[in-house]
């Protein structure tokens, strides 16, 4: 059981998760954090709370209980329709000052990182960025926040010993969502919101959806990624899209393939692209540079096909084939098509 702290820090209790939503849709990472937060709260023997801000979002509250929250702090106002640092930050900081949580988790999304950085500064407390591991040191009653840095070359465990709350942003797709418990309920705390548009310094005019095909690699179950080894644009498209189609997956790419102009940047996997966590990740003609590997480590199974037996990707893969993509991949497509029925089941 966790020790009780003395002095000022003892006043801070409980684990909070910022529930990120856009247009009434909750970001998956927030539910993942309820799963991770539940475990931290149980270890500490404290409550897990969700903090939900927005315009007409009270319909989401029951879902948060079902995913593990004991309590939900809700702030609703028309001016909270779009996320704005200044409004969200003000309300969040006031809630923290009033209710004093010991741990605050937010998704390491553009919104979560923006809000967390502002809130931590106002509270003058520590914030660990982009974590991939969370645990509790029961003897010191501390959050152990582990994160990659230096482009994924190192991992570091960061502590915030003398300040509360302890804050962390957490990378999407790393923590596991808990299975929802239908009908589970908790306590709702509604907070008053006073905001006036005239006093605000920023205004969101609109949100514009990107044109063209939606690529959501973060959610994909199977990804077929291609690299420089595919030689040219035509082969890249033939082999990657061909295999993806045969196995029911999405296409991804290394930076070398993106820079060669074979595919758009939004398909890039890795440090400066997206981080993915599919069931199966194919790396076709990808060497396995560290900046690529940091983006794929969450995959359950990594399959590497590369002609160079020394390629670093073979150290990271689950199954490797040393061979030429131009012969292996067409054979694979062919065999998969024969087995098609089984695989898609």
């Amino acid at each position: 059981k966790a020790v009780q702290l003395k002095g000022e820090l003892a006043a801070y209790q409980g684990v909070w998760v910022f529930i990120e939503q856009r247009e009434g849709i909750v970001a998956p990472v927030s539910l993942e954090l309820l799963g991770a937060g539940r475990q931290l709260a149980d270890k500490l023997g404290v409550e897990l709370c969700g903090v939900l801000l927005g315009d007409q979002v009270s319909g989401l509250v029951n879902m948060l209980y079902e995913y593990g929250a004991d309590k939900v702090y809700l702030a609703e106002h028309p001016l909270l329709h779009f996320y704005r640092t200044e409004t969200y930050m003000k309300i969040f900081v006031e809630l923290v000052q009033q209710y004093k949580p010991e741990i605050i988790l937010m998704g390491a999304t553009t919104t979560g990182r923006d809000l967390a950085g502002a809130v931590a500064t106002d509270l003058a407390t520590g914030l660990t960025a982009d974590c991939t591991g969370l645990d509790i040191d029961l003897e010191q009653r501390l959050l152990l926040a582990t994160r990659p840095a230096f482009g994924g070359n190192i991992m570091a465990t960061i502590l915030c010993k003398k300040h509360r709350p302890q804050m962390a942003t957490v990378r999407p797709k790393v923590m596991k969502m808990a299975a929802p418990v239908p009908g589970r309920r908790g306590e709702l705390i509604i907070s008053e919101v006073n905001l006036q548009e005239e006093k605000l310094l920023t205004k969101v005019l609109e949100i514009v959806k990107e044109q063209g095909e939606q690529v959501n690699l973060q959610e994909a179950e199977i990804i077929v990624a291609g690299g420089r080894g595919l030689g040219d644009r035509e082969n890249f498209r033939k082999l990657c899209f061909g295999l993806a189609e045969a196995i029911g997956g999405k296409v991804g790419a290394s930076r070398a393939a993106v820079e060669a102009g074979w595919i758009e940047q939004k398909y890039q996997v890795g440090q400066t692209g997206v981080t993915v966590a599919p069931k199966i990740y194919f790396a076709l003609g990808i060497s396995g540079a560290i900046q690529h590997l940091v983006g794929i480590r969450g995959s359950d199974i990594i399959i590497a096909i590369n002609s160079d037996p020394e390629a670093p990707i073979f150290k990271e893969c689950t199954y490797g084939i040393v061979g030429d993509v131009f012969t292996i991949v067409p054979l694979l497509i062919e065999q998969l098509k024969e087995k098609g029925g089984i695989l898609c089941a």
């Binding site: 003058a124 407390t125 520590g126 914030l127 660990t128 152990l144 990659p148 994924g152 070359n153 190192i154 991992m155 570091a156 465990t157 960061i158 502590l159 915030c160 010993k161 003398k162 300040h163 940091v294 480590r297 990594i302 590497a304 037996p309 073979f314 150290k315 990271e316 893969c317 689950t318 199954y319 490797g320 084939i321 040393v322 061979g323 012969t327 292996i328 054979l331 694979l332 065999q335």
Partner: peptide, 27 residues
């Protein structure tokens, strides 16, 4: 407020199983 308590190399997978055989068998 934050301090780095530990620095370590990212955990590597134990190294993959490299399949052996002719192309057809591999696939």
């Amino acid at each position: 407020p934050t301090s780095v308590s530990k620095i370590f190399a990212p955990s590597q997978r134990s190294g993959g199983e490299i399949l052996k055989g002719q192309d057809q068998q591999l696939v």
